[in-house]
Write a protein that binds this DNA or RNA. Sequence first.
DNA 1: TATTGTTATACTCTATAACTATA
DNA 2: TATAGTTATAGAGTATAACAATA
Lengths: 168, 168
Amino acid sequence: MPTLPTAPNADRETRASREDHRALRLWLRLLTCTQLIEREVRGRLRASFSTTLPRFDLMSQLERHPEGLKMNELSRRMMVSGGNVTGITDQLVREGLVERAADADRRAFRVRLTRAGDKAFAEMAREHEAWVVELLAGLSRAEHKQLFDLLAKVKRHALDNAAAKEPA
Amino acid sequence: MPTLPTAPNADRETRASREDHRALRLWLRLLTCTQLIEREVRGRLRASFSTTLPRFDLMSQLERHPEGLKMNELSRRMMVSGGNVTGITDQLVREGLVERAADADRRAFRVRLTRAGDKAFAEMAREHEAWVVELLAGLSRAEHKQLFDLLAKVKRHALDNAAAKEPA
DNA sequence: TATTGTTATACTCTATAACTATA
DNA sequence: TATAGTTATAGAGTATAACAATA
């Protein structure tokens, strides 16, 4: 079917289709970039510290909250289900890096880094940052900022979207 | 230790430390954005089509190559190990969406979409694109392009980095 | 009744290494 | 010998749902 007569909305459709593919390509690139970096970081965390990204993430959350976080707060911040947080926390407790401290609400407790955990995390975080700096070194300082700001918009939109889905 | 005398390189270190945190925050934001979108897409693929992202990804690769792809090509493009590709391909073959066609090299074959697979993928791809457009609608057209270009740099740098590690 | 957290279960994806068959 | 692909194994991560204890 070559050269069809141009229907009234053909132009709009063509444009829409192009928009679609642009968004799709953008998404695929975003995914690729993240996977490339994530894979590298995972591998190095395993090789250098025998740990994993979720474990690192959990400890990182605790490091920002020395007073401790409740399980459901961890779950929300890590965007993972409660059962998962229990499992990861159990591991870290067994290794003496994290502890469950009593809370006023006796159903709950506060998960905190132990002193050993704090020390271990500091080491990991230092190296981890160096890796990330290296992996993102393809961008200038100004480009870092641009990317950061653009992703802020993406994030806000995605969060609004998610919020709209649980109207409570 | 308050107000230490300023060592010669304190400034540089401070700057470096700030750079580090900037890169780290950028990485965390990149990860969050991807996870937010990925989670949404995974959920919808499961809910609407009872499929998964890797399965969708594999079919998407085949759709771009109607002549078929060899297993190791799929493995490379999907950035996963060979054993994985075998597993995912097996599933799709069982469901009649994909087929292994003979190749001149009798060790290998070409994996292709079946007619049913092609049809199923077209439907999924259409919806999938609509989701992605919606999820990325927080950005203007110009911002899309900016983000796309910035991510190109990130990707190139990450790939160079990866290539440098396997000197072969 | 609702909430906090745990347990149990199951499934997907993943990598690694050993293996078969062609080249 | 090297390559294409499979198989076997093991482990991480995830979600869901049922459950216990407390609010």
